[in-house]
Design a protein around this nucleic acid. Structure first.
Lengths: 212, 212
DNA sequence: ACTCCTTGGATAGTTATACTGTCTTCGACG
DNA sequence: CGTCGAAGACAGTATAACTATCCAAGGAGT
């Protein structure tokens, strides 16, 4: 199919497709002649994936590039997932004062959760530390590990559930896609559900509460 | 204190403070004379709150404005929380074809969860529908309610936990702040923890898996 | 009283991200 | 055999969130 058909089938404008091609997010089509390139279902699929990640997951184009590069990772599927996790994680902000402590706290949280398969140099160790650091400077929440425990437990269940539910018939890139889409989509869904649940549950405690 | 001191104490540059003042995110200081305005701890605190929401929660300035407006809501604390939830929620994207169905599905999910205190016109009903719609167009995930059930359960626990943990000694705005910071910070923490947990748990299943 | 510094206030400029539009050439298809 | 659309290069736009400049004037230190 030509680029215009690819555009119609995916709803992505032609200029945007060209942009993604330039950025290397979309593989080149089959160049039959210098003036005619043939795109196929893999392009339709990839474009769909890119749009879900951008629209639902707010993954920046930079992150998509990292993800595309990560898909090339050799080794086990576990290795692949680890590299993809780093690609999907935001780049940690520069450390401020107190990062050493929060990094230690982050490591402690991970160790306490029993997540001993997490690489020492996982980007998310720093991301966790950075969040703790930023929140720490805002007095209200002293953030001790105990307060975070329920979230660790949730994350653990979530991850187990998602890993267990992956379709075993797929190839490595298929698994990667399913993992990524699940992570990104359900993050969004969970955030929304949580706000909804909070609205509901606040009724119990605060429906009559008129305090100043 | 003067604006320069406010800046030093919070780490927020003076021009940014001016910007927030213009946008109405920060209340005006006490204007002693036309050339001297006095800021106090409330400003320090508010600025800290704004920075946490922006840096950790990626809340857009537009959302911060809605939140500031929401804080004026009269009525019960429950009403206040509901309005704030809408302020914090992203504005739902324009409905595409199929939105009617996904909206019905969203309503069904909420009803099935037993969240009968959620307003009919909560913005998040549409957000949930919009997400389902976008994902629906990406073939892989047919998204039936059963698949979402675990997430509903998680959201429910999370919300109960957070509502229950709010400090009862605070005034309405204090409660609101605690709720918002908790929501935003723990959303970020949970996302990071989930990626970490997934890296750990993928080991069990995929450490040996070399598939193509 | 005299500088010199800083503030408040207005307005304009900057950076980053993610597209979107225009232009040109030229081959493909009817 | 003429015109329509594709490819490719490159420039332009939109938005968000700041950031910088300018100016007049009040205040602080001497």
């Amino acid at each position: 199919m030509r680029i215009s058909e690819l555009s119609e089938r995916t709803g992505v404008p032609v200029p945007t497709i060209k942009y993604y091609l330039r950025e290397g997010l979309l593989p080149e089509g089959d160049k039959r002649t210098p003036r005619l390139t043939e795109y196929d279902d893999r392009h339709v699929r990839r474009l769909g994936l890119l749009r879900v990640l951008r629209d639902v997951g707010d993954v920046p184009v930079e992150g998509l590039k990292r993800l595309v590069a990560a898909a090339e990772t050799r080794g086990t599927v576990h290795d692949l997932f680890a590299v993809a996790a780093d690609a999907l994680a935001p780049t940690p902000p520069a450390p401020g004062p107190g990062r050493a402590e929060t990094r230690a706290m982050a490591d402690a949280i991970i160790a306490h959760a029993g997540w001993d398969r997490v690489r020492e140099d996982s980007v998310d160790r720093d991301n966790l530390a950075a969040t703790l650091e930023m929140v720490g400077s805002f007095d209200t929440h002293p953030r001790d590990p105990a307060e975070i425990a329920p979230y660790v437990a949730m994350a653990d269940r979530l991850a187990r559930h998602e890993i267990a539910n992956l379709d075993d018939h797929k190839d490595r890139v298929g698994l990667l896609e399913e993992m990524i889409v699940g992570q990104v989509v359900f993050a969004s869904v969970l955030t929304t559900l949580r706000r909804l649940a909070e609205e509901h549950h606040s009724h119990e405690r605060f429906a009559e509460d008129q305090r100043d």
